[in-house]
């Protein structure tokens, strides 16, 4: 019997009626059904995307710049809303959440960005603790959990440093610590290595691997092929021209999977012009 996971409480937290939905524990953590997102009418970013992510998976999302990787993640943490279709997070339709429920959803999703999104004049501790403070956690628990999170990302003892004095790699570690400190059900990473050199990028990828090994679902968006080659065993989702193409067995199997997917898509949509970036 370990510590209670904050993430385990999310069903009760973001359901407006306050009742815990036990069946959610057996459902895929994330399901996208016919998701369409349009910013410009003549060029939809996502065209009827169907996708299921199971609990505990590590999924790479890749594709060229502007393909819709970030949009896909934004739809999951409700920074954007779908135009058609639905997104089920632990069985609940995100699009139907009220505005009051959105913060509760976000407390159960850790997000890491390319530009770290740290507050430069806050200390490392404050930048991580904020994820627990917004949930009203007692300060004693906050102190111990932040210390553990910083230890996990290799920044033990650096809590008093200002975020602005850290290197890029260290700042991204703080961002990862903030994303995992409340033990969320899923961690979304949007090009988390985009601002880092190749060595640090591998370092951060290793950090996400460790997070994944502890049981957390990780969705890692990147256009960096060298990173995909470092972890070819993970499931790969390619977004191109607003559609997804999957390789469940990872990069090694991507060729065959993509061909199959392409044939299926061509039959479904003769005008599709999706190009593969790999």
């Amino acid at each position: 019997m370990g510590r209670p996971r904050i993430g385990a409480q999310f069903g009760r937290q973001f359901r407006p009626d306050g009742h815990f939905d036990r069946s959610a524990a057996h459902k895929p953590i994330l399901v996208l059904e016919g998701v369409v997102k349009v910013f410009r009418a003549d060029a939809p970013v996502l065209r009827r995307v169907d996708l299921t992510i199971e609990r505990g998976e590590f999924v790479f999302v890749t594709g060229p710049s502007g393909a819709g990787k970030s949009t896909l993640l934004k739809l999951v943490y409700r920074a954007e809303t779908v135009d058609e279709g639905r997104i089920l997070f632990c069985g609940r339709d995100i699009a139907r959440l009220t505005d009051e429920s959105v913060p509760f959803l976000r407390r159960n999703i850790g997000v890491v960005f390319q530009d770290f999104k740290l507050v430069p004049y806050w200390s490392v501790f404050e930048n991580v603790a904020v994820a627990l403070e917004v949930a009203g956690m007692p300060s004693r628990i906050i102190r111990s959990r932040v210390a553990m999170a910083l230890e996990r990302v290799g920044l033990a003892g650096r809590g008093d440093d200002l975020a602005s004095v850290l290197s890029g790699g260290e700042q991204q570690r703080v961002a990862v610590a903030r994303a995992i400190v409340n033990e969320p059900a899923i961690v979304l990473a949007d090009e988390p290595t985009g601002n880092l050199d190749p060595v640090l990028a591998l370092d951060i990828l290793g950090l996400f691997e460790e997070v994944h090994e502890s049981g957390t679902t990780v969705v890692f968006a990147t256009h960096d092929r060298s990173l995909l080659e470092q972890a070819p065993q993970h499931r790969l989702i390619v977004i191109d021209d607003g559609r997804t193409i999957e390789a469940r067995q990872g990069l090694r199997a991507v060729g065959g999977a993509l061909d199959a997917q392409r044939q299926h898509r061509d039959a479904d949509d003769a005008v599709s012009t999706a190009r593969l970036p790999l």
Binding site: Y77, D99, P103, R106, R107, K117, L118, V130, A131, V134
Partner: peptide, 9 residues
Amino acid sequence: VLRLVGASP
């Protein structure tokens, strides 16, 4: 950052 980590309005 506050919005991102689930702070209420």
